[in-house]
Structures are given as structure tokens and as C-alpha cells.
């Protein structure tokens, strides 16, 4: 008990601050990454020719570990929050882009033909038919992006930019297990909570008519 009060006295404030910083990184990068990924996903879906070249290139880029992105940006931009946010935004973009593309590509031909036969133009088909039907997959991408970002944000501490990684690195360096847990447990909880939150969101925004199909899968 005494130990707990001591810990709270010592680290309470910095824990809250670092959770805040961590959330800020996640929120900023996922927002930017989502907008970028969605836009690019739609564009690539609409121009099959480029998609065939760009998608494989992107998946090669995707194999670069996040730490390298952060590291290299750090060398060029210096120790700024922007370094972390730019690197993580690019990371968050990949799954959203991929899922947007896949979700749109998987919309059945018959719905598109019916829409075209009804006299919808391309924009109307996109917003009224294709995107609503692709939403579950797109949100799946958003979920991945968020979870990855929570994970990679831990690395921000590596270049001295705070977040929950700060405790983990510090704990490892000074060999204090309780400090490691101080960062690891909140980070784990944060990832799980955000994942569940997005699951709820997914259920909310999926058009009612296709929810059944979704559950069957």
C-alpha cells in the first residue's frame, strides 16, 4: 500500500502526461493516415492501371519497420513531435488504403450494374453504393491502423519524445520491472480499449441491411 502511494506520488503526474502524449500521437497520426488512406484507396480503385503498379510498391514499403521511418526522419527533422506524427501517419495510412481498395474491389458487380442502370453517375455510385458496402472493410483497416499506431508510438520515447514508451525504455535501462509495467500495462490497455471502441464504431456505421451478412462471416 505504502509502495503504491509512493509510486503515485512519484509517477502519477508523468503517467497521465505520457498517456496524453501517447493518445495525441495516435489520434493525430490515425486521423491523417485515415484521410490519406481513404482518399488514395478510392483513387487507386478508380484507376486500375496505376493500382497494379502502386499497390505492390506500397506493400514493399510496408515492410520497412516503423523504427526506421522514425529514425531517419529524426535524423533529418530533429527531435520534434512532427517527426513521430509524420512517420506514424504514413504507417497508419497503409492498412486503411489497402482495406479501402479491397473493400471497394469486393463490391459485387451486380450492385454496380444496377446502380449504373438506374442512371447514377460515378460519384453517386461511389457514395451511395460502393462506399456504404465497403464500410465494414474500411473500418477494419482503421482498426489495424489504430492498433499499429499505439504500438509504434512506444518508439517515440526512443528519440526522447515521451509517450508510454518512456517508462518502458527507462525501466529496461535501469532494470526496474515496476517502471516497465508502468508503461507496458497502460499501453496494452490503451490498445485493447481503442480496438474495442472501433469494433463498436464498426457495428454502428455498418448499414443495417448488410449487418447480418457481416455476422455470418
Amino acid at each position: 500500500m505504502e509502495y503504491l502511494t509512493k509510486m503515485i506520488d512519484l509517477y502519477g503526474e508523468s503517467l497521465l502526461r505520457n498517456i496524453g502524449i501517447h493518445l495525441l500521437y495516435v489520434f493525430a497520426s490515425v486521423s491523417i493516415g485515415f484521410v490519406l488512406g481513404l482518399t488514395l484507396g478510392i483513387l487507386l480503385y478508380r484507376s486500375e492501371k496505376y493500382a497494379k503498379i502502386i499497390l505492390p510498391v506500397l506493400s514493399v514499403f510496408n515492410t520497412i519497420p516503423g523504427i526506421v521511418f522514425i529514425g531517419i526522419l529524426f535524423l533529418y527533422l530533429g527531435m520534434k513531435p512532427a517527426t513521430v506524427i509524420i512517420a506514424l501517419s504514413i504507417y497508419a495510412m497503409f492498412p486503411v488504403l489497402k482495406n479501402t481498395f479491397v473493400g471497394l474491389t469486393n463490391v459485387e458487380r451486380r450492385y454496380i450494374e444496377a446502380a449504373r442502370g438506374c442512371g447514377m453517375n460515378n460519384r453517386q455510385i461511389l457514395f451511395r453504393v460502393e462506399l456504404p458496402l465497403a464500410i465494414p472493410t474500411i473500418i477494419g483497416g482503421l482498426r489495424m491502423a489504430t492498433i499499429y499506431t499505439v504500438s509504434w508510438s512506444v518508439l517515440a520515447a526512443m528519440i526522447g519524445l515521451g509517450g508510454l514508451g518512456e517508462f518502458i525504455y527507462q525501466g529496461i535501462n535501469i532494470n526496474r520491472n515496476d517502471i516497465i509495467l508502468l508503461g507496458a500495462i497502460p499501453a496494452a490497455v490503451l490498445a485493447i480499449a481503442l480496438g474495442l471502441l472501433i469494433d463498436v464504431l464498426q457495428r454502428k456505421v455498418t448499414p443495417r441491411g448488410i449487418r447480418k451478412e457481416l455476422n455470418r462471416r
Binding site: 516497465i180 507496458a184 499501453a187 496494452a188
Partner: peptide, 22 residues
């Protein structure tokens, strides 16, 4: 299994390290 993959990798490794050592 889903939760295990959700937990940030470094956090997971940190927790395991406490039990198994570096």
C-alpha cells in the same frame, strides 16, 4: 489471440522480460 496481437509489441516483450529476463 486477438488481444495478444493488440498489445503493443514492445509492451508485451517488456512484460515477458520481467518473468524470463532479457
Amino acid at each position: 489471440a486477438d488481444v495478444l496481437q493488440t498489445v503493443p509489441s514492445l509492451a508485451l516483450l517488456g512484460i515477458i522480460m520481467i518473468f524470463v529476463g532479457a
